[in-house]
């Protein structure tokens, strides 16, 4: 399988990365090189093989459903490019 220019633009939108029009061809080439490389996996007989879900035999631990941290919103927003009254500020999303 390989990607065309439209697919490159679509992946860019899905990944929320702006793709410059003059970069589409170069990216298409790079992505197709990688997709060509992984193509060899089609040679492998995977009939009846379970997909790996955990690399070591373990079950995800559960913990009691209680609050163990918090109460410091100013620390949460301390690295925000823009914040106000301990809220993150973003461009307007609802009219």
């Amino acid at each position: 399988m390989s990607v065309d220019a439209d697919t490159v633009r679509r992946i860019g939108r899905l990944a929320r990365i702006r793709i410059e029009e003059n970069d589409v061809e170069a990216l298409k080439g790079e992505l197709n090189t990688i997709l060509g490389f992984v193509e060899q996996l089609n040679e492998v007989d995977i009939d009846g093989v379970e997909p790996m879900t955990s690399v070591t035999p373990m079950q995800l631990r559960r913990r009691e459903d209680k609050v163990t941290a918090g109460g410091h919103p100013e620390r949460i927003v301390s690295n925000a490019p823009e914040s106000e009254d301990n809220f993150f500020v973003v461009p307007k999303v609802v009219e």
């Binding site: 992984v38 996996l41 089609n42 492998v44 995977i46 093989v49 379970e50 997909p51 790996m52 879900t53």
Partner: peptide
């Protein structure tokens, strides 16, 4: 498919 190959 890749995760199945990983199992192998």
């Amino acid at each position: 498919r890749a995760q199945k190959v990983r199992t192998l």
